[in-house]
């Protein structure tokens, strides 16, 4: 009681500051991005070479696609730690169906999506019906899926794919890497879902105030399950692209990707407190991380230092998020 009253007193005073902070949050990251691009370009003009730029976008495509699902999950105040392991599971299953002259291309893709969708469905069910904390449910899936990937592949990479499957991660269309098309399409679809469908509105509602969502007659259980399933499918798409890109189904693929995807979402303004976040934001978050990696590479900064810088950026972004939520 006391804290609440004291807070409401201070709230008024900081309202203008909060608004300012909110604008910094909204446009601040765009600014950070352009600042970064400018500095890197001055130090290494090679950065602006179109081939390098395409390379940056291709590199971030996989993390971004995972990030779209993760963004929705985080908007509902959830978290998904299983993405990296699900990528591995999807990778080995897809790879085993993608050998030359084995099945038409659609089969490994569909099965891959199905595997990802099922893991998401299980996550969602455990969280929405089993009332498990998302952290625990997806941590369980993280460990289990990795184990299943190792079992399925006997711990070895699965190689030798059909031409068409190889094209997914390695091919070019009109001079642009194919994964970039997939990135654009998934981004567009995710954005439209989030902003222009009932499902999207409910995602924001659940994260904005779950109790209010229940009172408003929203089937919170159903939509939570759907969100995790969607995240699973997005992860599967990323897994298929990665498999093709690496020319191998790797049971050890995707380690740490879940954290990169969460980082992209958070840098892009998605609030871990729920109710706030956008797809363009997540792309920006991934772009910032990708540009940073690429730029530091071009400047011959050691990979070890790159980690340190990335860590600073992530913490900085969350600090700004905190500022906004006084």
């Amino acid at each position: 009681m006391m804290e609440k009253d004291v807070l409401s007193e201070t709230q008024k005073g900081v309202k203008s500051r909060v608004k300012l902070a909110s604008n910094i949050q909204r446009y601040g990251m765009v600014l950070v991005f352009f600042l970064m691009v400018t500095i890197i370009t001055i130090l290494s003009p090679r950065f602006l070479d179109p081939r390098n730029l395409l390379n940056v976008v291709r590199q971030i495509s996989i993390i971004s696609i995972v990030g779209f699902g993760v963004t929705m999950v985080i908007i509902t105040t959830g978290i998904d730690l299983s993405s990296g392991s699900v990528i591995a599971l999807v990778s080995v299953v897809t790879a085993s169906l993608a050998h030359p002259n084995q099945y038409p291309l659609i089969i490994p893709i569909l099965v891959g999506l199905l595997v990802g969708g099922i893991t998401g469905l299980i996550n969602g069910t455990l969280i929405a019906i089993g009332k498990l904390p998302a952290f625990i449910a997806t941590l369980g899936m993280m460990i289990t899926a990795r184990g299943l990937a190792l079992i399925y592949s006997d711990g070895r990479p699965i190689t030798n794919f059909s031409e068409s499957f190889n094209f997914l991660g390695q091919g070019y269309l009109f001079g642009v890497p194919f994964p970039i098309y997939v990135l654009a399409l998934t981004a567009l679809i995710s954005h439209i879902i989030l902003k222009h469908t009932k499902f999207g509105k409910y995602v924001y509602a659940i994260g904005g105030n779950e109790q209010a969502a229940i009172i408003s007659g929203i089937d919170v259980v159903k939509y939570k399950i759907l969100v995790y399933t969607y995240a699973g499918i997005m992860t599967a798409i990323a897994g298929i692209l990665l498999t093709s890109r690496l020319s191998a189904g790797q049971p050890t693929a995707g380690v740490g990707y879940e954290l990169d995807a969460i980082a992209a979402a958070v840098i892009g303004g998605t609030s871990l407190n729920g109710g706030i976040g956008t797809i363009p934001g997540t792309i920006l978050g991934a772009l910032i991380m990708g540009t940073l990696n690429n730029g530091l590479d071009l400047l011959h900064v050691s990979a070890y230092w790159q980690q340190v810088v990335k860590g600073f950026i992530i913490v900085g972004a969350v600090l700004m998020d905190k500022q906004r939520r006084i």
Binding site: Y202, A205, I215
Partner: peptide, 18 residues
């Protein structure tokens, strides 16, 4: 407990009748 504080006026108004 009834409002979606981080959401817009518009989203708050339509949420029970989408």
């Amino acid at each position: 407990s009834g409002l979606f504080l981080p959401l817009s006026v518009r989203d708050n108004i339509i949420m029970a009748s989408i």
